[in-house]
Design a protein around this nucleic acid. Structure first.
Length: 110
DNA sequence: TGGTTGACTAAGT
DNA sequence: CACTTAGCCAACC
């Protein structure tokens, strides 16, 4: 049943789908873009429901470029493998050259 | 109904 | 520089 919160989730999914390959963004960045700057956790929770969607949740990481959500994926290193497959260098569950790979919707998406 | 949890982030100690 | 506290808010028990 659709509710106001589903709308927020849908917005999160939509932004996540716009993330280019080889790029990543943060939960806070998406939340800020949606006007819910302080609800970064909700973005993460929304990602939890993105499993049934075509949302590249593996491109969404925390602000430090750390793959905090990798445990929610099937494998232990699936998230990392997906990102590396797109050209993102990851070491010890953390994205390297994050500045080069970071994609901020508030800046890039306008 | 109400307290705990969490894929976050910033600020404080 | 590592750990803690605080704020946020929906989902879960």
């Amino acid at each position: 049943m659709p509710t106001a919160t589903d709308n927020f989730f849908e917005r999160v999914y939509q932004v996540a789908r716009l993330i280019p390959e080889g790029k990543v963004t943060s939960y806070g960045a998406i939340a800020r873009y949606l006007g819910a700057a302080k609800s970064a956790r909700m973005v993460g929770w929304a990602m939890n429901g993105s499993k049934a969607k075509d949302v590249p949740a593996h491109r969404v990481v925390n602000k430090k470029g750390l793959l905090t959500g990798k445990h929610h994926f099937e494998g232990t290193n699936l998230m990392q493998q997906l990102l590396e497959n797109e050209g993102v260098e990851i070491i010890d569950n953390q994205i390297q050259n994050l500045t080069n790979c970071f994609w901020d919707p508030t800046t890039e998406l306008r």
